[in-house]
């Protein structure tokens, strides 16, 4: 199974309803998930507005992490919200609304990546750890290992970390992003990418190894 969303036909609100509800309140409301979902199901514009304003920031951040550029990411966020509005009747409350929207956005971003044909399978062999003919690791000594705080404290080295993650071939980068950064579990990633769980683990390990290689100068404290 691919990453495609199965859509039911949209159940869109009438214009008049939305206009009416817009008058009811001025400032930001606060709803819990259940109230928000309830409102969205009746087609309330007020609830839709609240949903968008509450969740668009994090959703945009995920889309950007996966897709890079702003234009694609904003497109993706729009599509994701549209799906969310359409599928709200199917929201079962087994996860939070935030998690549900996060998954929809990830799914949408992956579809975009595929459409852009960027899920390529470039090899990362050159970035893999080295072993000699006796199966012994070849690894230069690490007299110092920079701390995460030190590295992220400086704008230049922090930017380097994110740019090195972007340098990974997509099929590895995505697994690293989904598992380590978006914190999906192995089974979820396998399902989203339509690969086996074993394959997810292999790619995750390779992605981390490759990233370690790419970050070596930073980790060794050699980059100012």
């Amino acid at each position: 199974m691919g990453v495609g969303c199965r859509l039911r036909m949209p159940n869109l609100p009438r214009r008049s309803e939305t206009l009416f509800e817009k008058d009811q309140t001025g400032d930001r409301d606060s709803f819990d998930d259940a109230a928000l979902v309830e409102g969205l199901r009746t087609g309330s514009a007020r609830h839709a507005d609240h949903l968008v304003r509450t969740h668009i920031g994090p959703m945009r951040a995920v889309a950007r992490r996966i897709l890079g550029g702003d234009a694609f990411a904003d497109d993706c966020v729009q599509e994701a919200f549209l799906k969310a509005f359409r599928k709200i009747d199917g929201f079962e409350g087994r996860s939070s609304l935030k998690t549900w929207l996060h998954r929809i956005t990830v799914n949408e971003a992956l579809m975009k990546l595929r459409a852009l044909k960027r899920l390529d399978e470039r090899p990362i062999d050159l970035l893999m750890p080295e072993f000699d003919e006796n199966a012994c690791r070849i690894e230069a000594a690490w007299p110092t290992l920079a701390t995460t705080e030190d590295i992220l404290e400086r704008e230049s080295t922090r930017a380097l970390v994110t740019s090195k993650i972007r340098e990974l071939p997509d099929s590895y980068r995505i697994v690293l992003l989904l598992r380590d950064i978006e914190e999906l579990d192995t089974a979820e990633v396998a399902k989203l990418l339509d690969i086996t769980q074993g394959n997810v683990k292999v790619r995750l390990h390779r992605a981390r190894s490759a990233l370690k290689k790419l970050l070596e100068p930073v980790l060794r404290g050699e980059v100012e």
Partner: peptide
């Protein structure tokens, strides 16, 4: 190697 690997994972998350 493992120390640097773990630091890499931590760094990616934190970044």
């Amino acid at each position: 190697y493992l120390a640097a690997y773990r630091r890499t994972v931590e760094l990616g998350r934190a970044a």
